[in-house]
Design a protein around this nucleic acid. Structure first.
Length: 605
DNA sequence: CATTGCTGTCATGGA
DNA sequence: GCTCCATGACAGCAA
């Protein structure tokens, strides 16, 4: 802020000095300084003084911003919902910053699009109360939109440049710095809760940090800091303009922040594909995958068509925070990232559910020591399947918050009178795309997939060096050996055990149900066969009965025929009433008088 | 809005 | 006593 004013006061000399200072900083970053210095070497002492002033100012700004952030964070913590804002704020800034730079480059002195800067500043202001201080700077910045010269052509431009351009460059640089700083802050807001739980990550790009950045930023948002570092290193010195010019100038109208955000991916590609893209693009990729777009390889971020990006702008912001947080949590393993892509579906699920699920905010203890059961509780909440990550990173993962943040960020871009159009487009994008696509995708996925992704996400969150498959499927001995080889904390061990238990139980349940179904099918088959046999036996019984009756019939007729042929001594036939034929076991047939029987019976009795 | 089927998970008991 | 497995019960989700 102050810096800008000073240049104005002293004009050419101080401008030159500022430029010189800035360039020196750039040199620190790797830029060649000789180009600029020639005319200003004499004023070394003045430059140094100005440098000191600038640094002090910057530090002051940083402090103020930090204070503001802290205040926000505290407030958020009190409410418990604070989480959402940071992600939203965080995302807009990255694109915004580059956009500004590019704008400067594009519009240079004449255009100096105040709107674009104002918008950016508004965004920043909304995201951070501190912005007020920053806003003071914008005016000067707007005027000197010669950034291209500064960034692009230290070599080319400096010698010939007039004081004005130099001032512009310095201002631009300042803006860039401010933006860069602002980004970490935003991230910081997001990650505030996580600070305690988080371990200092390896992400600290010390060199990139430069004086401006607070060391804490790295801690909070390793990924973002990385980005910043990259931008600072590569962009500020020489690549500054180059990186941004291509994509932004042509595409982004100074007034349209939305477009700028949309372009962000391209910009990223321009930056450092490895660090920057990896940081944010995973999210983007995931978002795409979620949205049903063609599956994106890990490095496919750059390939994303602009149309897709525009169509699904909201997705990006949400995703980015998640990933950023994850990285911030700990340096993610490549493996984990890959899984993430796979679990992307899970993530997507998470994203939508999260938006719907209030739990996240409540769950956000920020403590990673949770056991799997804890996570489960969080997960168990309906629609929180994706929230695993969010749970782990309460701050980052509040989609609602993110939306709000985005919406908030957008409004500044859309001054009520000036730009009615934006509000329409942005709101649609923000509210519509972000969550809805995710939800659909999530629902579309099978439960098992989402579940697996859950465990995978948990494992990633705790940086468990094993795949879920390994954890579940390895034999006990191998599993124990594997566990013994890695030093895992209690939380990790608990999670691994739970994953193994759940995984095995899941398989057991599947097998059990399978057996159950098989048993049911077998019993049904047996029932059918038994029914058939019963019918057969019934038919047989009927047939047997009928044949028996026939035989009895034949026997009776035969008996009568035989009996009728018998004659007594007088040649008279025997009366059937008085005699009956009976056969002994040896086949001999006797004619037995019935009367005798009756007579005998009484006797026997 | 209720029902149904599928799936994951937990609790429990047996080996 | 621990682990593994099988299974009933419950809950969430989607159709």
């Amino acid at each position: 802020m102050m810096e800008i004013e000073l240049p104005k006061m002293h004009q050419s000399q101080q401008d030159m000095d500022l430029i010189d200072i800035l360039w020196r900083q750039d040199i620190d970053l790797g830029a060649g300084r000789e180009v600029f210095d020639y005319s200003h070497r004499q004023k070394e002492s003045a430059l140094q003084r100005q440098r000191a002033l600038e640094e002090e100012k910057r530090q002051h700004l940083l402090r103020e911003q930090e204070k503001a952030l802290l205040a926000q964070l505290q407030l958020d913590e009190e409410t418990g919902e604070f989480v959402p804002r940071p992600p939203a704020a965080a995302q807009p800034p990255p694109p915004a910053a580059p956009a500004e730079v590019t704008q400067n480059g594009l519009f240079t002195e004449d255009d100096g699009n105040p709107l674009s800067f104002d918008e950016c500043m508004q965004l920043l202001a909304e995201s951070f109360p501190l912005v007020e201080a920053i806003e003071t700077t914008p005016p000067p910045l707007d005027a000197p939109t010669s950034v291209p010269a500064g960034s692009d052509g230290p070599d080319m431009m400096v010698p010939s440049q007039s004081p004005l351009p130099q001032q512009k460059t310095s201002q631009d640089l300042e803006q860039a710095w401010l933006e860069l700083l602002s980004i970490p802050e935003l991230q910081q807001c997001l990650n505030m809760q996580m600070e305690e739980a988080l371990e200092p990550t390896s992400f600290n790009p010390a060199g990139a940090q430069t004086e401006l950045q607070d060391p804490n930023y790295n801690f909070y948002m390793p990924g973002l800091t990385d980005m910043v570092a990259n931008t600072a290193d590569t962009v500020c010195p020489a690549g500054y303009l180059n990186t941004f010019e291509g994509p932004l100038p042509s595409i982004i109208p100074p007034d349209n922040l939305n477009q700028m955000t949309l372009k962000a991916p391209e910009m990223n590609a321009g930056f450092s594909p490895d660090g920057f893209c990896d940081m944010f693009y995973p999210g983007l990729v995931n978002a795409k995958v979620d949205s049903g777009a063609a599956p994106v390889a890990a490095g496919g971020n750059a390939a994303l068509p602009l149309a897709e990006l525009q169509s699904a702008p909201p997705l990006k912001p949400a995703d980015v925070p998640e990933f950023a947080l994850e990285e911030g949590f700990e340096s993610r393993k490549p493996e984990a990232e890959a899984e993430f892509a796979d679990s992307d579906s899970g993530l997507s699920l998470d994203a939508s559910p999260n938006a719907s699920s209030p739990e996240k905010s409540t769950c956000g203890d920020g403590s990673f020591g949770f056991s799997d059961s804890d996570v489960e509780e969080m997960d168990s909440d309906p629609g929180s399947t994706e929230s695993d990550v969010s749970d782990m990173f309460p701050l980052t993962f509040n989609p609602d918050a993110y939306q709000t943040a985005t919406s908030v960020a957008t409004p500044p871009a859309q001054p009520p009178e000036a730009k009615p159009e934006r509000p329409k487009t942005e709101p649609e994008e923000g509210s519509g795309h972000d969550k809805r696509p995710f939800t659909k995708d999530k629902h579309g996925k099978r439960r098992g997939e989402s579940r697996l992704s859950r465990d995978e996400q948990r494992a990633q969150a705790l940086h468990i060096p094993f795949t879920v498959d390994m954890i579940i499927n390895l034999p006990v001995d191998d599993f124990n050996e594997m566990m013994s080889r890695q030093q895992l904390n209690e939380a990790q061990l608990a999670l691994v055990r739970d994953i193994r238990r759940r995984g095995k139980n899941k398989v057991a349940a599947q097998n059990c149900r399978k057996r159950k179904m098989e048993n049911i099918v077998g019993l049904e088959y047996e029932l059918d066969s038994l029914k058939e046999e019963r019918e057969r036996l019934l038919r047989e019984k009927t047939e047997t009965g009928s044949s028996l009756r026939e035989m009895k019939k034949q026997l009776s007729s035969l008996y009568l025929e035989v009996f009728s042929l018998l004659r007594d001594e007088n040649g008279k036939p025997y009366s059937p009433n008085e005699y009956s034929l009976q056969q002994t076991s040896d086949g001999t047939v006797f004619l037995v008088p019935r009367i005798k029987k009756t007579l005998i019976k009484p006797e026997g009795n």
